[in-house]
C-alpha cells in the first residue's frame, strides 16, 4: 500500500501571542510544531503500513525550516519525506497550496491513500485536504475517526455532531482525520539521528523538480483576499448566576428577556 501524508508546520498556538495593532500572530520565539491533526494522519499512515506493508511518503510545503516537521514525520516511521520549498510558493492560499501539493503527489507516482489532518491550527480552514482530492479526482472522506481496509476498499467512520456515518469507497481515496483516531507515537531517537545523518532521507523540491504551471503558484495565483484581520474584543464582563438550578434558570430567563433575546 502506497500512502501519502500531507503535513503543515504551524506555530504552537498554545504559546502564540497576537499583535493587537496589526491583528497578526507574533511568530518570534514561538516554537513550531507539526499541526496536531497532521500528526494523527502520519500515525494512521504508519500503522496501516505496519499492518499491510508498503510505503509512507510525507509531503509538506513551507519555508526551509519546515524541514524540522519532516524530520519528525520521518522519525515517526515515514519512509520518505519531501519538502516543497521555493520562493515561487510563498504567499499561497489554500487553493494554490492544494494545487502545488497535488502536483507533487502526482510526481511521486501511484498511490492508494492520501491522509491529511482535518485543518491546521493556524488557519482553521479545513480546505486543503478536500481541494487536493478534487485536484486528483479521487473520492474524499473528511472528519475521519476510524479506518478499516478491506481489499481495495476503505471503510471510514466519519464524525458528525451527533454521531457518525460509515462510508465505504474504493481506493485510491483521500481522508482528512481528526483528533481521537489514534494516539500518535513518539518519534524514534534512532530515526532522528538517521534523518540528519543518512543521505536523502529528507528531499527538498523546488519549482524545477516537478511539473507545475508556474501561473498557478504563490500569492499571485491565490484567489483569497484578506480585507482585515482583528482581535475580537470583549465588551461584556461575564456574569455567574448563583443559586440552585431552578433559581438559576429563572434568573437566566429573566436576563434573556431583559436583553430581548427571547
Amino acid at each position: 500500500m502506497k500512502i501519502v501524508v500531507c503535513v503543515k508546520q504551524v506555530p504552537d498556538t498554545n504559546e502564540v501571542k497576537i499583535d493587537e495593532k496589526k491583528g497578526t500572530l507574533i511568530r518570534e520565539g514561538v516554537p513550531s510544531i507539526i499541526n496536531p491533526e497532521d500528526k494523527i494522519a502520519i500515525e494512521e499512515a504508519v500503522r496501516l503500513k505496519e499492518e499491510f506493508g508498503g510505503e509512507v511518503t510525507v509531503i509538506s510545503m513551507g519555508p526551509p525550516q519546515a524541514k524540522d516537521a519532516l524530520v519528525e514525520a520521518y522519525a515517526m516511521g515515514a519512509d520518505k519525506a519531501i519538502l516543497l520549498s521555493d520562493k515561487a510558493f510563498a504567499g499561497s492560499d489554500t487553493w494554490a497550496t492544494a494545487y502545488t501539493l497535488s502536483q507533487a503527489i502526482k510526481e511521486t507516482g501511484q498511490f492508494d491513500l492520501i491522509f491529511c489532518g482535518r485543518q491546521a491550527i493556524d488557519g482553521d480552514t479545513a480546505q486543503v485536504g478536500p481541494q487536493v482530492a478534487e485536484n486528483l479526482s479521487i473520492p474524499q472522506i473528511t472528519y475521519v475517526k476510524g479506518v478499516d481496509i478491506e481489499d481495495d476498499e476503505i471503510i471510514a467512520k466519519r464524525q458528525l455532531e451527533d454521531g457518525y456515518s460509515v462510508i465505504k469507497t474504493k481506493l485510491p481515496a483521500l481522508l482528512t482525520v481528526i483528533d481521537g483516531l489514534n494516539e500518535p507515537r513518539y518519534p524514534s531517537i534512532k530515526r532522528i539521528i538517521d534523518a540528519y545523518n543518512k543521505e536523502d532521507t529528507i528531499q527538498t523540491w523546488t519549482v524545477e523538480d516537478f511539473e507545475v504551471d508556474k501561473d498557478k503558484l504563490g500569492l499571485d495565483a491565490s484567489p483569497t483576499q484578506v480585507y482585515d484581520t482583528f482581535v475580537p474584543t470583549r465588551d461584556h464582563e461575564p456574569e455567574i448566576l448563583e443559586g440552585d438550578v431552578e433559581e438559576k434558570v429563572e434568573k437566566l430567563i429573566k436576563k434573556l428577556k431583559e436583553e430581548k433575546v427571547v
Binding site: 524540522d68 524530520v71 522519525a75 532522528i192 534523518a195 540528519y196
Partner: peptide, 15 residues
C-alpha cells in the same frame, strides 16, 4: 549542540 540533539531533547521533554 546540533539540530539533531535539539530535536531529541524536545522528544525527551515531551515524553
Amino acid at each position: 549542540i546540533s539540530k539533531e540533539h535539539e530535536m531529541c531533547k524536545k522528544v525527551y521533554r515531551d515524553f
